[in-house]
Amino acid sequence: MDPTREILEVLYREAELLDEGRYREWLALTTEDVVYQVPVRLTRERPPEGGYGGVSPSMYHLDEDRTSLEMRVARLETGFAWAEDPPSRLRHFVSNVRVGLPQETARGTEVEVRSNLLLFRSRWDRPEFTLLSAERRDLWRRQEDGWRLARRLVILDHSTLPTHNLSFFL
């Protein structure tokens, strides 16, 4: 099958799991050695070489491995995770998907994938909502039972976050 079609399907499937709060199933979409990072972004002068400026190489909003993601998911399952219980209404709008050429590596077939994300969040019974915008730079790996997320770098289009916490995944 065309890898682009397969990747699109897995990205939409992933968004569906995150929007429906099926975090345990989402966790199963990640590899054992997954690295999931959301760096702090700062307003900096335009880099002469172009590209994104101000992406901190040292500080993050989230810097996770499989164990810490597992901890965050287990927390949401306790029934006492007030930040997401009642849950936020989330919608992951995934667009501008760019799929690289699949590469054979020592770990298997891997492909770099970039996508744009617009995340809608509303909470409580109030009419206000939050939008978070970002580019996601992923590495997906083909395992026996399908594509798995091995790496994600979320480049936020925000310096100061317009929301009171990041109690969900991007």
Binding site: V40, S58, M59, L161, P162, T163, H164, N165
Partner: peptide
């Protein structure tokens, strides 16, 4: 410092 600070807005 371990890096730049996180900045986020809380309605409180």
């Amino acid at each position: 410092v371990l890096g730049p600070p996180q900045r986020f807005v809380v309605p409180t």
